[in-house]
Write a protein that binds this DNA or RNA. Structure first.
Lengths: 220, 220
DNA sequence: ATCGGATTGAAACAAGTGTTTGATTGAGAG
DNA sequence: CTCTCAATCAAACACTTGTTTCAATCCGAT
């Protein structure tokens, strides 16, 4: 591994950037956590900003590889594809397996964008949006008006991202116990059922006795 | 106005903190924008962090006063209260009348909390959450299970906050034209209809021919 | 073994940070 | 007028920041 320190720098930088933000992260802290010399970052990357975009790009590429095209079985009904899609989005953040900073640094870009935001959108957000759009077109019909389809997609993703971005606020609001009780599976089921009911493909919440008939087209 | 410069400092600091974040905002920039001396911030507030929390507290108090208890007419049906509530939340951010930083600095706290986050939650988020809870209890019945009610509230607020937080990402994703076409009124109508359909109190989107009957209880 | 380019190391650099100092101003009170 | 005290100002403080320098080191190729 010839670029050992280079990779160690990216890992340390990504974690610190994701936790503290770009400005609050100091090169000295990054190098210390990476067990590298202070000059290493300038030798391998040129300057701080280039190290930052390298960390973002690494997070993107890892997200791509961790994300096997999200290609569900072709015979999977679209309703179940939506359910699996929502569950997977939630799992990726709230049940972070290894490097929690991969999504953290991209969420920071999306909320308070720097010049690396456009790359994040093109390489990460747009493929995911296209996946969501494909599911929605199967659910709603391929002649569905684009603007309304966009808003429906935003409504679904917005529910998911809410638990991404405002996790600490939710914990303060409802308390640690109630927050811990909101398991990923419970949230995914709720968001899926809420959204399916909204577009008329599932029983509505709140008044469970009412189950509107489901169009035959979307059941296949 | 004896505390003229003190107020000018809070205004300038709030705007710069909201735009650049805490670390990236320099006291010299703030003082220059406030037409105050560099020593003024330490004279009036003590240090940078105290100035920051003063700006957050000012944003909270202003949000309170701008927000007249959100007390709708008592005879307003809960469905219309929800619609008005959602519209008002969206208007406050996307049609910012005067100081756009009041919500920006609080959104920053909610997404990447500092020690001032708890105060924001208690003084700003919790009253708004209680208002939403009151509407939902009227809509769903006052014996509705708390956890599911929380998740429904989060689903509604999450849709709204999505357009708050990820506005720049949405613009990059769907383009400036399509983004400008998403007027506040259009978004509010969509989120309201989407959410009402989800809880079984309105026609579902996507398959407009289906209009499930609305329970009598919630129509009053 | 020796050369040469790649990598690392400690130290210093200039610039910027938040903070403090002490003199200076200004206006109201005695 | 004189005294007083709060407010402002320019200047400097101590410190951290990102960046650079140049010698020391490593390691494979000759």
């Amino acid at each position: 591994m010839i670029d050992d320190t280079r990779q160690r720098l990216i890992d340390a930088a990504g974690a610190i950037f994701a936790n503290n933000g770009y400005e609050a992260a100091s090169i000295r802290d990054i190098c210390q956590q990476a067990s590298a010399n202070i000059a290493a970052v300038n030798y391998h990357f040129g300057d701080k900003k280039s190290l930052y975009v390298a960390a973002v790009r690494h997070a993107q590429s890892c997200a791509d590889s961790e994300n096997p095209e999200m290609t569900w079985p072709a015979d999977m009904p679209p309703v179940e594809r939506l359910r699996a899609h929502i569950l997977q989005m939630l799992q990726r953040k709230l049940e972070g397996d290894k490097p929690a900073w991969h999504l953290g640094i991209m969420l920071r870009e999306m909320a308070f964008p720097t010049e690396a935001c456009a790359a994040v959108v093109e390489d990460y957000v747009r493929p995911m949006a296209n996946g969501m759009r494909a599911i929605l077109l199967d659910l709603l019909g391929h002649d569905f008006p684009e603007e309304e389809g966009n808003m429906i997609g935003f409504s679904i993703v917005g529910q998911v991202l809410f638990y991404y971005v405002h996790q600490p606020m939710i914990r303060l609001l409802i308390g640690s116990d109630a927050h811990d009780a909101l398991t990923v599976q419970k949230l995914a089921d709720h968001i899926t059922n809420f959204s399916l009911a909204a577009i008329g493909l599932g029983p509505s919440l709140g008044h469970p006795t009412l189950t509107p008939p489901i169009p035959i087209k979307a059941m296949i």
